[in-house]
Simulated assay, not measured.
Amino acid sequence: MIFDCHTHLFLPGQVGGAWGAAAKRAWNMEVIATPEQHEACVRGFDGAIVLAFDAPATGCLVPNEDVARYVATAPGKLFGFASVDPNRPDAPRLLEEAVKEHKLCGLKIAPIYQNFYPNDPKHYALYAKANELKLPIMWHQGTSFVPEGYLDASRPVELDPIARTFPDLKMIIAHMGHPWIDECISVVRKNTNVYMDLSALGSRPWQFYNALVSAIEYGVAHKILFGSDFPFFTTQQTIDSLRSAGRFAVGTPLPPIEDDVIESIIHRNTPELLGLV
């Protein structure tokens, strides 16, 4: 199995405001990911999670309905995660609606794009609803290129009280919480149902190598999920960067990254781990 746990759909006009302007500065690109482009990215692989995005604070709005419509074209291969801005007063109801009406099977939230503090008690009703519905939550905990985002809300350790409150709630920390990777690993190690994905790290090879070594040394490489962050990177690019991540150690005293560790990440059965199937 090769399953990409972190991909996006961005139709024309859905990324604007601060998010769109910052993406142009950081990536020199218009952020577009059509269904046709997404299908081409995951063609030949076993499946992917496709993420909605409800982030009015920074100008990124990918409706749950659009993701639901697309993933319905490949049931059993594509899995849609809803996005609900936790600042919305009816956030728990909107999440339940996304599940019951649109058949979405997870929740994507991102403090640095939605401008909220994860451990604020007023947001716990949303987490409780996800827990009730047995939905995994994917968190963007880590840095971003959007100046208006709440960087201080984005540290992985912010999720530890939530994991303790809802020990059965499956959560994924995207991008291994970069640049707070060891902090992310600490949260993942102590909480049974918290995982991390390595999406977007391949573009920083030295950081990527050290992240993998640290995960191995802490004994949590089995909790790394494979993801690309399409359209910023493709599934195949991420496979290639992962298989070359250990090159820094060749012919040196640096810790090696064994091939079986790399292949176990690439072939991880993420749908089963997250209860999607």
Rank of each mutant, 00 (worst) to 15 (best):
T192Q: 13
P12F: 07
I266K: 01
E65A: 14
L273T: 01
F45D: 00
I137L: 06
D85Q: 01
P63E: 07
K100S: 10
G47S: 10
A211M: 12
I162E: 09
G20I: 11
K108N: 11
P63Y: 07
N119S: 13
G177L: 06
T165F: 06
H123S: 00
M138Q: 15
T235C: 05
D54P: 04
G17M: 04
I224Y: 01
L274A: 04
P255D: 12
K190G: 00
F53R: 04
A125G: 12
W27D: 06
D259C: 00
I109F: 04
P121H: 03
M176S: 14
R25A: 14
M171C: 15
Y218S: 09
L159Q: 09
T73I: 02
I181A: 10
K100D: 04
A18R: 13
L9V: 06
A200E: 11
V99G: 03
F53N: 14
D85P: 00
L201F: 09
G59W: 06
P12R: 08
Q37D: 05
F166I: 11
P136N: 11
I224K: 01
Y127A: 06
G17R: 08
A200T: 11
P86A: 04
V99T: 04
R164G: 10
E263H: 05
C41N: 15
G275N: 09
E263I: 00
L135V: 07
I185W: 11
E272W: 02
E183D: 15
G80M: 09
Y70S: 03
W27Q: 10
A68D: 07
T192P: 00
T270W: 03
D260W: 12
L201P: 05
H8D: 05
A211C: 11
M196F: 04
V157E: 09
V277P: 13
Y117C: 03
P255S: 10
Y127N: 04
E183S: 06
K24Q: 15
A128H: 07
A249I: 08
Y113L: 14
E30W: 07
R25S: 13
I49M: 08
T270I: 15
L169N: 12
L104W: 10
G44M: 04
G251C: 05
I181T: 15
E101S: 11
F3I: 01
P75M: 09
D46M: 01
V15L: 10
Y113M: 13
I216V: 14
S241T: 14
E263Y: 01
P156N: 06
L104Y: 10
H6Q: 13
K108W: 14
R164P: 00
E39P: 00
D152N: 08
L201M: 15
Y150F: 14
L9A: 07
A57Y: 03
A40M: 07
V99N: 04
V213Q: 12
F233S: 08
W27I: 03
A40D: 08
R204F: 15
E96A: 07
G80P: 08
F81M: 10
F53T: 03
G20S: 10
L51N: 10
K100C: 00
N87A: 03
M196I: 00
I109M: 11
L242P: 01
Q37Y: 02
L135E: 08
P256D: 11
